[in-house]
Amino acid sequence: MADIAPDRFALDIRDLAKTFDRPAVDGLDLGVRVGEYYVLLGANGAGKTTTLRMVTGLLRPDRGKISVFDVDALADPVGAKRIMAWLSDEPMIYDKLTPVEYLDFVAGLWGVERGVAQTRGRELLGSLGLAPYARQRCEELSKGMRQKVALAGALVHEPKLIILDEPFTGLDAGSARIVKDVLRARLREGCAVIMTTHILDVAERMADRIGVIDHGKLIAQGTLAELRQQAGGGDASLEDVFLSLIASNEDIAGAETGL
């Protein structure tokens, strides 16, 4: 387990809001501490991905404040981007490039010095089991392999905040284990990870803290034990806890609207 700095936030979100045809994120407050693995859970359309996309600068919030390691991500987006990485469930890679060329490209975008990029690239491709495919074009790789290439790209510039949207989609058990190990190693080096997932088993075993989001609001947050407490105690699984928290929030919302 990594050392978590209790008072230092890697990501600090205050009163974040975004409305499309209905509110997607509605006054969200959320903090991820340095060295922490934070998992954001929520039903489909709850606002998880919208939140993360606003943090990464892919969406402009209607209101609110986002700080990444004390850098104001809205006032200084380039400064914030320099220290974070975004990985979506659809690998953002180029079919016609090889993994080595892809890492070289990403390193170039983040201005990583050649020697450093080469060492990190070699380590990442090795640790993610991509070395035999290093000179093969990405179009020839399986979905899981492509996902790992994208992860290597996200890590090659050594981000301090790693933002992952469903990173385990398409990965086999062995690959998922490798990815988890790589992420844990990053946490030990002082990074922070915020991740969305529908695989509750992964959340249960990986997360230091879990946030549950519903209708764009954070309805519960804490360690698994704390969430169990909020859901009524006992030794319930995260799946039961999650469903219970969502159901009680629906009840409250229903009572408030009189439905």
């Binding site: 990464t56 600068g57 981007k81 974070m84 953002m92 180029y94 975008l109 983040w110 201005g111 790209g153």
Partner: peptide, 9 residues
């Protein structure tokens, strides 16, 4: 990879 480019500094 538009999002990769957009999230780059």
């Amino acid at each position: 990879a538009p999002e990769l480019i957009q999230t780059a500094p």
